[in-house]
């Protein structure tokens, strides 16, 4: 259980480990984008960790990185194909960031640090926890940016029409700002414990 929960809070991949920041900053312009990116990562991380953990005993040390990368790239390509075929508008929104999941630190990081050294069951749970944590983190960040920068969340207008949107929130600078505040907030909560 603790194995699962740590990815959701204590060892949160974005807010505590500061991993996978590239897609975090780039795709969180709208809550919908953040959510779909999160779901893509859940698929990739869970399946990659599963396979890596299954074959960990037969992979020689020297080709570890190459093998893991090929596996991760395969699953990312599957996600890319799937998006293009069944959710083309999201594929266009997220653009190059879906293929970039291959080099997302979280994926290779978890495969290397955990899945390659633990049982299949534990690796699966760890992957689920981490990727779900990533998803809620992205959703939160994206919601804040969309709300302040556009007055909407998931396209639903929540702020009165008189609200003058903070354009900076939609730009990269806004992403860094909100991320910074969220990391600080999480640190504060942890310290107060």
């Amino acid at each position: 259980m603790k194995n699962f929960l740590k990815g959701l809070w204590k060892e949160h991949p974005v807010f505590r480990q500061l991993l996978g920041l590239c897609p975090t900053l780039a795709v969180t312009t709208t809550a919908k984008n953040g959510l779909y990116m999160g779901m893509a990562v859940i698929f990739v991380l869970v399946f990659s960790c599963l396979i890596v953990s299954l074959i960990k005993k037969i992979v020689p040390n020297q080709v570890r990185i190459a093998v893991y990368t090929v596996i991760i790239a395969t699953f990312v390509t599957i996600v890319d194909i799937f998006f293009k075929a069944y959710i083309p508008e999201m594929s266009k929104e997220l653009g190059p960031y879906i293929p970039l999941i291959i080099v997302n630190c979280i994926i290779l990081g978890r495969c290397e640090a955990f899945a390659s050294k633990n049982s299949v069951g534990k690796s699966l749970i760890d992957a689920l926890g981490m990727s779900l944590g990533f998803t809620w983190g992205l959703f939160l960040l994206a919601s804040i940016r969309e709300l302040l920068g556009n007055g909407t969340i998931l396209g639903i207008t929540l702020l009165p029409s008189g609200y003058n949107p903070l354009i900076v929130m939609i730009l990269p600078a806004g992403a860094f700002l909100v991320l910074g505040f969220l990391v600080a907030l999480m640190n504060k909560i942890e310290q107060a414990k």
Binding site: I58, A66, V67
Partner: peptide, 17 residues
Amino acid sequence: VLTFVCAFCAFLLSFVN
């Protein structure tokens, strides 16, 4: 190992595609 992993992944991908 590496050759087999690559070949298998290629197979899987072209199938899905």
